[in-house]
Amino acid sequence: MSDVNEHGHVSGGVYLPPDSFHAARWSGGRVTDLGASPFDRSNPYALNDRG
């Protein structure tokens, strides 16, 4: 987990085998993959109140 906003949305990361790590957002019981760089890695650092 990286951050939680006022609406309960959570930012963090998900591991995707065999060797990828993508930033993600959890909201309302759903996980949204936020994508990654050309090297197939991304890291979330903060989350605003707009999600």
Rank of each mutant, 00 (worst) to 15 (best):
N43W: 12
M1N: 03
L47I: 15
G8H: 02
A36R: 07
G51A: 08
V4E: 07
A36L: 03
F39S: 05
N48V: 09
S27I: 07
L16T: 08
D3C: 08
T32H: 13
Y45Q: 09
S27L: 11
R30F: 11
Y15G: 11
G13F: 06
H9R: 12
R30W: 10
A46V: 10
M1Q: 05
L16P: 00
G28F: 06
S11F: 01
D19Y: 01
N5D: 14
S2A: 15
R41Q: 08
P18A: 03
V10F: 09
T32C: 07
F39E: 06
L47S: 13
E6P: 01
Y15H: 14
G35K: 08
N43R: 09
G35H: 12
G12I: 08
G35C: 09
D3R: 06
P18C: 00
A36W: 06
L34V: 11
N43F: 12
A46K: 00
G28R: 09
Y45K: 08
P18L: 04
G29H: 14
L34G: 10
F39W: 13
G12M: 11
T32P: 04
H7V: 03
R30E: 15
Y45C: 11
L34I: 12
R25S: 13
L47T: 13
V31N: 10
L16K: 04
V14C: 03
Y15I: 14
P17G: 07
S11P: 04
R25I: 15
G28A: 09
N48R: 13
N48K: 13
Y45N: 12
H9N: 12
D3V: 00
M1I: 06
P38A: 07
L16G: 04
D49G: 05
G8S: 04
P44F: 11
H7R: 15
N43G: 05
M1C: 01
A36G: 01
V4H: 02
S11W: 06
W26I: 14
V10M: 10
M1L: 11
P18D: 00
L16D: 06
M1T: 03
S20F: 01
G51Y: 06
N43C: 07
W26K: 12
W26N: 12
R50S: 06
A24R: 04
G8F: 01
R30S: 14
D19H: 04
E6G: 03
G51I: 02
W26C: 12
N5W: 08
